[in-house]
Design a protein around this nucleic acid. Structure first.
Lengths: 191, 191
DNA sequence: CGGTCTCTTGACGGAGTTCAAAGCTAGTGG
DNA sequence: CCACTAGCTTTGAACTCCGTCAAGAGACCG
């Protein structure tokens, strides 16, 4: 059903074709239109998403009513609001498609079953989380140590694919700066 | 040997006394003096630490030569530089005891063995990472959405134990503000 | 006690925001 | 396939939060 997920799992652990066949039964495939919300503030996060194609973003709305993007997910990335998912508490986030996307969805009960019946998946998700955690740690380091301008240059250098596929006001939103200021930074670069 | 770790593991999964006996063979106990470094910039992170008593902190030194604290760990918390630990690359961080501490240490080879021979531990660490990841996600949300002043009030409300046990200049370092500005914020609160 | 480490105070400066308005671009319907 | 509109990007001026520097006041440890 989805070679992409199978390949991703096999990067971290080994599952046979037969086992993956069983695993993939627990997922469903879904198309998401541009700007469609998969999750909205106040809801409880019941699903886990794996991106096959397209881009998702996670954002919240701050006190001033401004959208703050905290995470992008492209092909091969997992996405959910873990906090709401773990505690089954109302989320403070939105998950939205930046561009039309194709995803795999697994519900919480199925996810539990997945982990209980396939011990390889415990390992897989341990690795996925470990990596995601390490990445966020680095992210926090950057948020602290860098000026907004350096953040932009760093982002540009490390994630060039996002620069091309994501509109500028969303990059500003991800970097925690205003579109106006981002525009100013870019002007400096060119001249 | 350590009831604390056993209890923590049993919060997420079930291990018998006998199994825990085996598990605990892989750890060693260590005392850390105040201000002693467990890890220094440029080294490779070979160990994972579990705090039994006291406080550790992780920090890096930014371009201006200022220490930026990115994480505290108290009783029942795990600590390492995951990025260096996973990739076996030189770390950019220091890990230091804020106050005299007592910790459990497990080396990377032992950690691998732990995961390979005790499948319950895959589950345990999957849960630990999942939680840690969710916590960092929230942390990033706060770093974006809040002013430095709000960050302080939020920290004070949510982590009162740290307020009491950690000196103010370290809290400033954790919040990413100067001790001077933290002092100014506190003054406003009192009057 | 004496010295180092921590916390406070105040004047000044700069990075980044806010607000308002104008120029672009891309999608949509006729 | 063109025209129109809504959404995106750019510009500039005023303002604010927070950092820097310098100096003084406590507080803790030997």
């Amino acid at each position: 059903m989805s070679r992409l997920l199978q390949a991703h799992i096999n990067k971290f652990t080994a599952v046979s074709d037969e086992e993956f066949e069983e695993i993939s039964q627990l997922f469903s495939r879904q198309e998401v239109a541009k700007k469609e919300n998969l999750l909205e503030e106040g809801q409880i996060s019941h699903s886990y998403y794996f991106v096959l194609k397209g881009i998702l973003r996670k954002f919240f709305i701050n006190e001033k009513g401004v959208e703050q993007t905290t995470e992008f997910a492209i092909e091969n990335w997992w996405m959910t609001d873990s906090f709401s998912y773990i505690n089954q508490s109302p989320t403070e986030f939105y998950i939205q498609a930046v561009e039309a996307a194709e995803i795999l969805v697994i519900s919480r009960p199925s996810f539990e079953k997945l982990l209980d019946t396939h011990s390889a998946m415990e390992k897989y998700f341990r690795c996925v989380y470990q990596k995601a955690y390490a990445a966020t740690q680095m992210r926090i380091k950057y948020l602290y140590g860098f000026s907004r301008e350096d953040l932009y240059h760093n982002f540009r250098r490390r994630q060039p694919e996002f620069m091309q596929r994501v509109p500028q006001y969303l990059i500003a939103s991800y970097l925690g700066i205003t579109p106006e200021y981002l525009s100013e930074i870019r002007r400096k670069d060119i001249s």
